[in-house]
Simulated scan of single mutants.
Amino acid sequence: MNLALFDLDNTLLATDSDFEWAQFLIGQGVLDREVQEAKNIEFYAQYQAGTLDIDAFLDFQLQPLSRHDRRQLDAWHAEFMTRRIRPNITRQARDLVERHRAAGDLLAIVTATNSFVTGPIAREFGISHLIATIPAQDCRSGRHTGKPTGLPAFRAGKIDRVEAWLESIGTWWGSFPQSYFYSDSHNDLPLLSLVSHPVAVDPDATLEAHAGQQGWPIISLR
């Protein structure tokens, strides 16, 4: 059994679920378009440039979850899946996941996007293991607090989170003859550099150049 790890946004998805969720809420009138859209675009540009302040971004991203009860959030998310996510899952992405599943590999999505947004997307792919940034919840009411809990699954934090997950299921890197990680972003270079089979998927310019220098495969799921 090998280990197959997948980034989500702009890798398995032909879009960014973080960005799309905020835009969806703006379209629903939940967030103010004039203020929130500009901030959403700014944060996305910072992510692409490798200058994102993850704490500032999570404060922006998670605050809307704290203002609404879970039933309303789940209803919005169901519509979000229909309108924004499923149309951006390509046959090539589904086939890649299925090839690894058919080979008997252990599959996980590893993403900086929070688990409220990404949990249903992981289930859409039939992937039961999700390593994502975790939004904190009040243990009594179940409402989101608007803050993250634990280490965000971002940049080198993805390595820490993956290793903690592997330990929790009684394994480690050496348990697998081969390990794969698929990503589009230079922000994922720490984890890409750790696995035995890094794969650049529709990569940004920085990752594409690095992959070319290192002789890593470059593929498209579009």
Rank of each mutant, 00 (worst) to 15 (best):
S168A: 07
I127K: 11
W172R: 11
I169W: 01
L130V: 11
S141Y: 01
S128F: 14
R155S: 10
R155V: 10
L130N: 03
R155T: 15
G174M: 10
G142E: 03
I159S: 09
I131W: 04
D160A: 14
T145L: 14
G150E: 08
Q178G: 06
P135S: 13
I121M: 02
W173E: 15
V117H: 05
G146W: 03
V162K: 00
H129A: 10
G119N: 09
T145G: 09
A132Y: 01
R140F: 12
R143G: 01
S115E: 11
S168P: 08
P135L: 09
F176A: 01
W165E: 00
G142A: 06
R123Y: 14
E163D: 11
G119Q: 08
Q178V: 08
R123H: 10
T133K: 03
G119V: 01
G142T: 04
A153W: 02
F154M: 05
T118L: 03
I131F: 00
P152D: 06
G170P: 07
G142W: 02
E167S: 10
A164G: 13
I127F: 13
C139S: 15
S115C: 11
W165F: 13
G150S: 05
F176H: 07
R140K: 10
W165Q: 06
G157T: 05
P148C: 09
L151Y: 06
L151V: 14
R123S: 15
I169F: 00
G142S: 05
A122T: 10
P148E: 10
D138M: 01
E167Q: 12
G150A: 06
Q178T: 07
K147P: 04
D160G: 13
L151E: 12
W173K: 14
G146K: 00
Q137L: 09
I127L: 09
W173V: 14
P120L: 00
S168I: 02
S168E: 08
S179Q: 13
I159A: 09
S179R: 08
K158C: 04
F116Y: 09
D160C: 11
I127V: 14
S175I: 10
S141D: 02
R123G: 15
P177I: 07
A164R: 12
I134K: 15
G119I: 01
A156K: 08
W173G: 13
R143H: 07
A122N: 09
A164E: 12
G174A: 13
S128Y: 13
A136P: 03
G174I: 07
F154D: 00
E124P: 03
H129I: 11
T118M: 07
W165V: 04
P152H: 03
G142L: 06
A132P: 02
P135K: 06
T171H: 13
G157L: 08
I131G: 06
D138T: 00
V162G: 03
Q137T: 15
I159P: 02
T118W: 07
I131D: 00
F125N: 06
I121H: 01
I127N: 11
L151F: 05
F116I: 04
S175E: 11
H144Q: 12
F154S: 02
I134E: 15
R155E: 13
A136M: 11
G150T: 00
D160L: 14
G126Y: 13
V117D: 04
D160V: 15
G150L: 04
